[in-house]
Amino acid sequence: MILDKPDEPGKKYALAFTLLVHVGLVAALFLGVQWKRSQPQVMEVELWSAQPSQATYVPPPPPPPEPVVQPEPKPIPKVEPKPDPLPAHKPDIVVKEEKKKPEPKKPEPKPEPKKVEPPKPEVKPPPKFDFDKELAKETNQLKSSAKATASAQHMANAAAAEAEQRASSNKRGLADYASKIRGKVRGNIVLPPSLQGNPEAIFAVDQLPSGEVLDVRLKRSSGNPALDNAIERAIRKSSPLPKPDDPAMFRRDLEIKYKPFEE
């Protein structure tokens, strides 16, 4: 008894569905598995023999203009104390900011210009000796008042100020981070004895989130292989690199520039 076997139903449909499934899979793979590592922003850490923070912190000098204003306010010494309560709060912030910035030597330069200038008013109207102290007080008050006005202006455009603060704190954080790394690497370096000139080497460093150094690549040689090796050894030796205070500041790729001496 021979029965003609009926065709398997829906061969074409099966083929179409199969194609559909595989096209879907391939599409999902192509769209889903895009392990593209976007080139992260490279942070630059410059290594110098001396802390460059002073050099970068030139802006503070603007305060000196204040002493020039001194001669005028003399007649109004008692009116000023009023703003004091306000300034009492705001200077705090200013002082903190100054403290955060590593500038231990600045306080010294500031007083000097003041001392130089006060003599001028003294020469013109030679007043009492007590006035010197008062002058000092006044100058302090003046400073605080000037800062108060400045901060008041800041308050006025609060949003802008906040943005500025954020930006500045960001910059400060970066500078802190850079100086931490700089300090650690510099502590580990052993400079080769035969060092001539002040050649600069640039290294690209990959680090893990834990700060562990993954890879150190020489980007631009200093021209002195011994120095290059010394720097690379120093970077590897300082392996867990210090972490930034703000985790958002962390970069996987660092670019470290090294100059043996400050220019």
Partner: peptide, 18 residues
């Protein structure tokens, strides 16, 4: 293999249902 197996899966599915 995956292609073949999916083809048979669909074919069997249709034929068993029918």
């Amino acid at each position: 293999i995956s292609f073949m197996s999916w083809y048979y899966i669909f074919m069997k599915w249709f034929s068993v249902r029918q």
